[in-house]
Amino acid sequence: MAEYHFPVPGHEIEGEKIIIFTHKHWAAFLGPIILGFFLLLMPIIALPILAVNSDVFSTAWRNVIILSTSIYYLLIVNIALIEWISFYYDIVIVTERKIIDIFQNGIFDRSISVLPILRIQNTTGEIKGFLPTLFSYGDVRAETAGEDSQTISLSSIPNPVEVASKIMELQKKLIAEEQREKESLEGEGVLKSKMATVSQVQEKLKPPQSSAPAEEKEESEEGKIDKEQLEKGGEIKL
């Protein structure tokens, strides 16, 4: 398995240049950071209070408390890493032609959504709340056209308004490119199709040619060559 599933930003994915490569904004992770901090502090605050108010540390319970605290800290640090992974591995990649949204939920849950930019009808960049306004991060929603309309939602990314407008800019550029290509192909296509029609007619008008013209001449001259032999092809023995 390749070590790196995606290239370095600034390089290409399947021949397309990466325009935007972003993780979630760090401020979106403030809540788990603060919660983790309090959970780590809890035993440090609770155990001295327990030691002062009771004689539990002079009994056999001391050993149990030590081991339980160790297990508690190991689990908290492990959960903190998993939360960080869930935050950090949420990535948004916008290439010249598509949007790739990678969503990581824990260690064993990862989903990758790919949306072609050409299909996008409109985009919305939203910044809601005190922290998002302060640090300028928010959500981008991109909706596709058609009956089976899809909405891709990129949450907590930096500068969502700029990202939304960049996506629309790429979409317009792609539409203009597609239009130009279509026009040039149509121009070529009209010429090619006319020539094909003429050549087809010419083919039809030509008399059918046998595979062995020399044998045909001989046949006309002598009239002794078998038709089956002519159809088989190859050298005809006279």
Binding site: E3, Y4, H5, P7, V8, I85, Y89, I107, F108
Partner: peptide, 9 residues
């Protein structure tokens, strides 16, 4: 698992 899924840099 996470080492396999990471990105360069």
């Amino acid at each position: 698992r996470l080492w396999q899924a990471r990105m360069k840099g």
